[in-house]
Simulated scan of single mutants.
Amino acid sequence: MIEDFVVFDFETARGKNPCSLGMVEYKNGKKYREFYELINPEVAYFNPFAIQIHGITYEDVQHERNFSELWDAMLPFIEGKTLVAHNAKFDNAVLLYSLQRYGIDVPPYASFCTLQRARRLVALPSYKLSSLANFFEVPQLRHHNALEDAFVCGELFLKLNRVEEELKLQEEHGMDFPSDYLDWIAEKQGQNVQIRRKALAGCSQLLSGLRFVISGNFQHFSRIEMQKIIVQNGGRITGSVSGLTNYLVCGSQAGNSKLSKAKLNGTKLISENQLLEILIDF
């Protein structure tokens, strides 16, 4: 089981041009040290979609150091280390592009991807970092903050390590190795499948005349699926909270502006599970 590793996460201005980097090093399965820096990508144009995701603008980083100026501080976290990322293909591409851009030699390192590993080990409707964090009950405060995402990914990597290790032991020893942890995983996977099947198949007028706004990330469904469930049960989806909104359905990382407007307008806040309780025997 790998217990010494470094998790890294880039946020980018556009393409492979990094504007922030978070790294968390683990030793013996425990958080050891961390690194976080804003990075001047030396490009003036930031993709508006990227800004919407991570909130970093050109003005935030125009006076920060560029990648090459930060490299000496980054190197101890990378050289000879086992690097872990969620969708490692992307983060490795950003790293290699930046090294090539500034003429820096690529240091030796090993790479693991929690996205690929999760797809191999557990059956879930979504493998987004936020969805996996919800499933494995890893707390997350600021999704798409590079340091926070690196920490969440590190905790997820440890949990996937445990799943893989106990699966191997169970394959070797069969029922001589009962695992409460694997039983818990199997039960949660079964609950996800059953809940999804019931909710997506449902069609009623239970939500007729009600207006909903959706915000955040959800455990069982994507936001598109949440919209579908509400509409096929008679509800109406709107993009912003107003005095006409009946419910704001909140997942993790719900938008602060929508929460503030809901409070101002007296809109009722409900969770994903509370909505499902209305629609199915949950």
Rank of each mutant, 00 (worst) to 15 (best):
V213W: 00
I224A: 02
S215F: 13
S130G: 04
F112N: 07
E165A: 14
F5W: 08
C113M: 05
P108E: 01
A146V: 03
K81R: 14
K261F: 10
L158G: 10
A254F: 06
S222A: 13
L248C: 04
S130F: 07
I270Q: 12
I270C: 09
I2A: 14
H220W: 10
R197K: 14
A110Q: 15
V24Y: 03
L182I: 07
E79D: 08
V6M: 01
F67P: 00
Q189S: 03
V122N: 10
I39P: 06
G251H: 02
V193L: 14
L38V: 10
D72G: 05
N233L: 06
G202D: 09
M175A: 13
L279W: 08
A118E: 10
S242M: 05
K128T: 13
F5D: 05
Y247D: 03
F151A: 14
T82R: 00
E137D: 13
L244T: 08
L38S: 07
T57M: 12
K81T: 02
I195P: 08
E277M: 13
S260W: 00
S130H: 09
N28R: 09
D180C: 06
E155D: 08
P178G: 10
Y26R: 04
I78C: 00
I214Y: 00
E272T: 12
K263C: 06
M175V: 13
E11N: 07
A146P: 06
L38W: 01
S242F: 06
I39K: 09
L169S: 11
L206K: 15
N161M: 12
K81I: 01
C250G: 01
H220P: 00
F177E: 08
V231Y: 09
Y26P: 10
